[in-house]
Amino acid sequence: MRIVAFILASLIMMTVDHRQGHLERVRSVLTVFVYPLQYVANLPVTVINWVSESLTTRAGLVKENTRLREEQLILSSKVQKFEILEAENERLREMLKSSEKLDERVLIAELLAVDLQPFRHQIVINKGRREGVYEGQPIVDANGVMGQVVHVGPFSSTVLLLTDPIHAIPVRINRNGLRSVAVGTGQSHVLQLEHLPNNVDIKEGDLVVSSGLGSRFPPGYPVGVVYNISRVPGEPFAKVSILPSAQLEKSREVLLVWPKSSPELPSNFESSLDDPNLLDDLDVSARQ
Protein backbone atom coordinates (compact mmCIF):
# COMPACT_ATOMS: atom_id res chain seq x y z
CA MET A 1 0.00 0.00 0.00
CA ARG A 2 3.07 2.23 -0.11
CA ILE A 3 2.16 3.00 -3.71
CA VAL A 4 -1.02 4.77 -2.57
CA ALA A 5 1.01 6.97 -0.25
CA PHE A 6 3.42 7.86 -3.04
CA ILE A 7 0.60 8.61 -5.47
CA LEU A 8 -1.03 10.87 -2.92
CA ALA A 9 2.28 12.59 -2.20
CA SER A 10 2.81 13.22 -5.92
CA LEU A 11 -0.69 14.60 -6.38
CA ILE A 12 -0.37 16.88 -3.39
CA MET A 13 3.04 18.13 -4.51
CA MET A 14 1.83 18.82 -8.02
CA THR A 15 -1.16 20.75 -6.76
CA VAL A 16 0.88 22.80 -4.34
CA ASP A 17 3.59 23.44 -6.93
CA HIS A 18 1.07 24.51 -9.54
CA ARG A 19 -1.17 26.63 -7.35
CA GLN A 20 1.03 28.17 -4.70
CA GLY A 21 4.67 27.73 -5.50
CA HIS A 22 5.68 27.02 -1.90
CA LEU A 23 7.92 24.30 -3.23
CA GLU A 24 10.45 26.63 -4.84
CA ARG A 25 12.78 26.03 -1.89
CA VAL A 26 12.60 22.26 -2.35
CA ARG A 27 13.23 22.62 -6.04
CA SER A 28 16.09 24.99 -5.37
CA VAL A 29 17.75 22.49 -3.02
CA LEU A 30 17.30 19.61 -5.47
CA THR A 31 18.84 21.72 -8.21
CA VAL A 32 22.13 21.41 -6.38
CA PHE A 33 22.14 17.68 -7.16
CA VAL A 34 20.93 18.12 -10.69
CA TYR A 35 23.27 20.93 -11.72
CA PRO A 36 26.43 18.75 -11.86
CA LEU A 37 24.55 16.34 -14.13
CA GLN A 38 23.53 19.13 -16.45
CA TYR A 39 27.04 20.50 -16.34
CA VAL A 40 28.45 17.15 -17.43
CA ALA A 41 25.79 16.72 -20.12
CA ASN A 42 26.84 20.12 -21.42
CA LEU A 43 30.53 19.18 -21.58
CA PRO A 44 30.60 17.52 -25.03
CA VAL A 45 29.15 20.66 -26.57
CA THR A 46 31.66 22.82 -24.73
CA VAL A 47 34.50 20.61 -25.90
CA ILE A 48 33.31 20.65 -29.51
CA ASN A 49 33.03 24.42 -29.42
CA TRP A 50 36.45 24.72 -27.90
CA VAL A 51 38.01 22.38 -30.47
CA SER A 52 36.35 24.09 -33.41
CA GLU A 53 37.47 27.44 -32.03
CA SER A 54 41.07 26.36 -31.63
CA LEU A 55 41.13 24.76 -35.07
CA THR A 56 39.96 27.86 -36.90
CA THR A 57 42.36 28.79 -39.68
CA ARG A 58 44.27 32.04 -39.69
CA ALA A 59 42.45 33.17 -42.83
CA GLY A 60 39.13 32.57 -41.11
CA LEU A 61 40.23 34.57 -38.11
CA VAL A 62 41.44 37.45 -40.24
CA LYS A 63 38.16 37.46 -42.12
CA GLU A 64 36.14 37.43 -38.94
CA ASN A 65 38.35 40.13 -37.48
CA THR A 66 37.74 42.38 -40.50
CA ARG A 67 34.03 41.81 -40.30
CA LEU A 68 33.97 42.58 -36.58
CA ARG A 69 36.04 45.69 -37.10
CA GLU A 70 33.59 46.97 -39.71
CA GLU A 71 30.67 46.10 -37.52
CA GLN A 72 32.26 47.88 -34.61
CA LEU A 73 32.81 50.99 -36.71
CA ILE A 74 29.19 51.07 -37.77
CA LEU A 75 27.99 50.44 -34.23
CA SER A 76 30.20 53.08 -32.68
CA SER A 77 28.99 55.66 -35.17
CA LYS A 78 25.45 54.70 -34.24
CA VAL A 79 26.30 54.99 -30.56
CA GLN A 80 27.56 58.52 -31.08
CA LYS A 81 24.20 59.50 -32.46
CA PHE A 82 22.49 57.60 -29.69
CA GLU A 83 24.46 59.38 -26.99
CA ILE A 84 23.39 62.76 -28.30
CA LEU A 85 19.81 61.58 -28.42
CA GLU A 86 20.05 60.16 -24.92
CA ALA A 87 21.37 63.43 -23.56
CA GLU A 88 18.63 65.30 -25.33
CA ASN A 89 16.03 62.87 -24.09
CA GLU A 90 17.31 63.21 -20.54
CA ARG A 91 17.15 66.99 -20.77
CA LEU A 92 13.62 66.92 -22.12
CA ARG A 93 12.53 64.49 -19.42
CA GLU A 94 14.04 66.68 -16.75
CA MET A 95 12.06 69.53 -18.18
CA LEU A 96 8.99 67.34 -17.79
CA LYS A 97 10.06 66.48 -14.22
CA SER A 98 9.88 62.78 -14.87
CA SER A 99 13.42 61.60 -15.14
CA GLU A 100 13.63 57.98 -16.15
CA LYS A 101 16.92 56.17 -16.11
CA LEU A 102 17.35 53.62 -18.83
CA ASP A 103 20.64 52.15 -17.64
CA GLU A 104 19.97 48.81 -16.07
CA ARG A 105 22.39 46.45 -14.41
CA VAL A 106 23.09 43.44 -16.58
CA LEU A 107 25.04 40.21 -16.23
CA ILE A 108 26.07 37.77 -18.91
CA ALA A 109 25.01 34.18 -18.34
CA GLU A 110 25.87 31.17 -20.39
CA LEU A 111 23.33 28.71 -21.59
CA LEU A 112 23.73 25.05 -20.66
CA ALA A 113 23.10 22.85 -23.66
CA VAL A 114 20.75 20.46 -21.92
CA ASP A 115 17.37 19.30 -23.05
CA LEU A 116 14.36 19.75 -20.84
CA GLN A 117 10.78 18.57 -21.09
CA PRO A 118 9.67 18.16 -24.69
CA PHE A 119 6.92 20.54 -25.87
CA ARG A 120 7.93 23.19 -23.36
CA HIS A 121 10.30 26.00 -24.16
CA GLN A 122 12.69 26.26 -21.27
CA ILE A 123 16.44 26.65 -20.99
CA VAL A 124 18.98 26.37 -18.18
CA ILE A 125 21.55 29.10 -17.53
CA ASN A 126 24.66 28.91 -15.38
CA LYS A 127 23.83 31.76 -13.00
CA GLY A 128 21.75 31.35 -9.88
CA ARG A 129 20.90 32.84 -6.53
CA ARG A 130 24.60 33.34 -5.75
CA GLU A 131 24.75 35.95 -8.50
CA GLY A 132 21.51 37.56 -7.36
CA VAL A 133 19.19 36.06 -9.93
CA TYR A 134 15.57 36.20 -8.83
CA GLU A 135 12.32 34.63 -9.94
CA GLY A 136 10.60 36.57 -12.69
CA GLN A 137 13.80 38.24 -13.84
CA PRO A 138 13.82 39.24 -17.54
CA ILE A 139 16.34 37.65 -19.88
CA VAL A 140 17.45 39.27 -23.14
CA ASP A 141 19.99 38.50 -25.82
CA ALA A 142 21.72 40.77 -28.33
CA ASN A 143 18.58 41.05 -30.45
CA GLY A 144 15.67 41.14 -28.08
CA VAL A 145 13.74 39.76 -25.14
CA MET A 146 14.15 36.02 -24.61
CA GLY A 147 12.00 35.23 -21.59
CA GLN A 148 12.00 35.21 -17.83
CA VAL A 149 13.47 33.19 -14.98
CA VAL A 150 11.02 30.73 -13.45
CA HIS A 151 13.10 28.57 -11.10
CA VAL A 152 16.20 29.75 -9.27
CA GLY A 153 18.77 27.36 -7.83
CA PRO A 154 21.98 28.28 -6.03
CA PHE A 155 24.15 27.90 -9.14
CA SER A 156 21.74 27.68 -12.04
CA SER A 157 18.30 28.80 -13.06
CA THR A 158 15.58 27.76 -15.45
CA VAL A 159 14.28 30.27 -17.97
CA LEU A 160 10.85 30.20 -19.58
CA LEU A 161 11.14 31.37 -23.19
CA LEU A 162 8.71 33.73 -24.91
CA THR A 163 7.47 30.92 -27.14
CA ASP A 164 6.34 28.64 -24.31
CA PRO A 165 2.58 28.08 -24.47
CA ILE A 166 2.07 29.50 -20.98
CA HIS A 167 4.17 32.63 -21.49
CA ALA A 168 2.74 36.08 -22.19
CA ILE A 169 4.44 39.47 -22.37
CA PRO A 170 2.85 42.93 -22.53
CA VAL A 171 4.00 44.69 -25.70
CA ARG A 172 3.35 47.67 -27.88
CA ILE A 173 3.82 48.35 -31.57
CA ASN A 174 6.79 50.65 -31.94
CA ARG A 175 5.28 52.58 -34.86
CA ASN A 176 2.11 53.77 -33.19
CA GLY A 177 2.22 52.70 -29.56
CA LEU A 178 -0.66 50.26 -29.87
CA ARG A 179 -0.65 47.99 -26.82
CA SER A 180 -1.25 44.27 -26.73
CA VAL A 181 -0.11 41.03 -25.19
CA ALA A 182 2.15 38.61 -27.04
CA VAL A 183 1.59 35.00 -26.04
CA GLY A 184 3.69 31.97 -26.90
CA THR A 185 2.25 29.33 -29.16
CA GLY A 186 4.52 26.39 -28.43
CA GLN A 187 6.02 26.64 -31.90
CA SER A 188 9.59 27.83 -31.81
CA HIS A 189 9.32 30.83 -34.14
CA VAL A 190 5.87 32.20 -33.53
CA LEU A 191 4.28 34.51 -30.99
CA GLN A 192 0.74 35.76 -31.29
CA LEU A 193 -0.83 39.09 -30.43
CA GLU A 194 -4.04 38.66 -28.48
CA HIS A 195 -7.32 40.51 -28.83
CA LEU A 196 -6.58 42.92 -31.65
CA PRO A 197 -9.70 43.89 -33.61
CA ASN A 198 -9.85 43.21 -37.35
CA ASN A 199 -9.52 46.83 -38.42
CA VAL A 200 -6.53 47.56 -36.21
CA ASP A 201 -3.69 49.61 -37.66
CA ILE A 202 -0.93 47.07 -37.96
CA LYS A 203 1.29 46.14 -40.87
CA GLU A 204 3.67 43.36 -41.73
CA GLY A 205 7.16 44.34 -40.66
CA ASP A 206 6.04 46.37 -37.65
CA LEU A 207 8.48 46.17 -34.76
CA VAL A 208 6.96 44.99 -31.49
CA VAL A 209 8.68 46.09 -28.28
CA SER A 210 8.07 45.32 -24.62
CA SER A 211 5.77 47.91 -23.08
CA GLY A 212 6.93 47.59 -19.48
CA LEU A 213 3.34 47.35 -18.27
CA GLY A 214 3.02 44.65 -15.66
CA SER A 215 6.42 45.92 -14.43
CA ARG A 216 8.19 42.63 -15.02
CA PHE A 217 9.98 43.36 -18.30
CA PRO A 218 11.80 46.65 -18.80
CA PRO A 219 10.15 48.80 -21.48
CA GLY A 220 11.59 49.30 -24.93
CA TYR A 221 13.31 45.99 -25.64
CA PRO A 222 12.46 44.50 -29.04
CA VAL A 223 10.25 41.43 -28.83
CA GLY A 224 9.67 40.62 -32.48
CA VAL A 225 8.54 41.64 -35.93
CA VAL A 226 5.03 41.19 -37.30
CA TYR A 227 5.18 38.80 -40.22
CA ASN A 228 1.69 37.61 -40.83
CA ILE A 229 -1.73 39.12 -40.28
CA SER A 230 -4.84 37.20 -41.12
CA ARG A 231 -8.09 39.07 -40.87
CA VAL A 232 -11.00 36.69 -41.22
CA PRO A 233 -14.33 38.51 -41.61
CA GLY A 234 -16.65 37.10 -39.01
CA GLU A 235 -13.93 36.45 -36.47
CA PRO A 236 -13.85 39.07 -33.70
CA PHE A 237 -10.08 39.36 -33.61
CA ALA A 238 -7.33 39.48 -36.18
CA LYS A 239 -4.70 36.77 -36.00
CA VAL A 240 -1.34 38.51 -35.80
CA SER A 241 1.83 36.40 -35.81
CA ILE A 242 5.19 37.72 -34.67
CA LEU A 243 8.64 36.41 -35.38
CA PRO A 244 10.69 36.73 -32.16
CA SER A 245 13.71 39.02 -32.51
CA ALA A 246 15.81 37.10 -30.02
CA GLN A 247 17.68 34.09 -31.30
CA LEU A 248 15.76 31.76 -29.05
CA GLU A 249 17.38 28.61 -30.36
CA LYS A 250 20.82 29.85 -31.25
CA SER A 251 22.04 32.13 -28.48
CA ARG A 252 24.83 30.78 -26.34
CA GLU A 253 25.08 33.80 -24.09
CA VAL A 254 22.18 35.66 -22.61
CA LEU A 255 21.89 38.83 -20.55
CA LEU A 256 20.21 38.91 -17.18
CA VAL A 257 18.63 42.31 -16.62
CA TRP A 258 17.94 44.01 -13.31
CA PRO A 259 15.43 46.67 -14.27
CA LYS A 260 15.72 49.90 -12.35
CA SER A 261 12.60 50.30 -10.29
CA SER A 262 11.95 53.72 -11.69
CA PRO A 263 8.98 55.71 -10.46
CA GLU A 264 6.24 54.41 -12.72
CA LEU A 265 4.43 56.83 -14.89
CA PRO A 266 0.68 56.45 -14.87
CA SER A 267 0.33 53.38 -17.02
CA ASN A 268 -1.06 54.93 -20.19
CA PHE A 269 0.42 58.38 -19.81
CA GLU A 270 3.12 57.72 -22.35
CA SER A 271 1.06 55.88 -24.86
CA SER A 272 -1.79 58.34 -24.77
CA LEU A 273 0.70 61.06 -25.69
CA ASP A 274 2.03 59.38 -28.77
CA ASP A 275 -0.82 57.12 -29.61
CA PRO A 276 -3.29 58.67 -32.04
CA ASN A 277 -4.98 55.29 -32.38
CA LEU A 278 -6.00 54.94 -28.80
CA LEU A 279 -9.24 56.82 -29.37
CA ASP A 280 -9.97 54.78 -32.48
CA ASP A 281 -9.48 51.62 -30.49
CA LEU A 282 -11.88 52.75 -27.85
CA ASP A 283 -14.43 53.57 -30.52
CA VAL A 284 -13.99 50.17 -32.07
CA SER A 285 -14.44 48.29 -28.86
CA ALA A 286 -17.46 50.40 -27.99
CA ARG A 287 -19.04 49.58 -31.30
CA GLN A 288 -18.51 45.86 -30.99
Binding site: I3, S10, L11, M13, M14, D17, R27, Q38, L116
Partner: peptide, 29 residues
Protein backbone atom coordinates in the same frame (compact mmCIF):
# COMPACT_ATOMS: atom_id res chain seq x y z
CA UNK B 1 11.47 -0.13 -5.04
CA UNK B 2 8.75 2.45 -5.30
CA UNK B 3 10.53 4.83 -2.93
CA UNK B 4 13.70 5.06 -4.99
CA UNK B 5 11.66 5.35 -8.18
CA UNK B 6 9.71 8.21 -6.68
CA UNK B 7 12.89 10.06 -5.64
CA UNK B 8 14.36 9.56 -9.12
CA UNK B 9 11.16 10.99 -10.55
CA UNK B 10 11.45 14.03 -8.34
CA UNK B 11 15.02 14.64 -9.49
CA UNK B 12 13.88 14.20 -13.07
CA UNK B 13 11.18 16.81 -12.50
CA UNK B 14 13.75 19.28 -11.24
CA UNK B 15 16.11 18.49 -14.09
CA UNK B 16 13.44 18.87 -16.73
CA UNK B 17 11.71 21.86 -15.22
CA UNK B 18 8.46 19.93 -14.96
CA UNK B 19 5.84 20.24 -12.26
CA UNK B 20 7.25 18.70 -9.06
CA UNK B 21 5.71 15.25 -8.82
CA UNK B 22 4.85 14.71 -12.47
CA UNK B 23 7.58 12.22 -13.30
CA UNK B 24 7.65 11.03 -9.68
CA UNK B 25 4.07 9.82 -10.04
CA UNK B 26 4.79 8.11 -13.34
CA UNK B 27 7.95 6.37 -12.21
CA UNK B 28 6.46 5.23 -8.90
CA UNK B 29 3.56 3.62 -10.77
Amino acid sequence: GIGIAWCMGLLLDVQQGALLGQNALGLAL
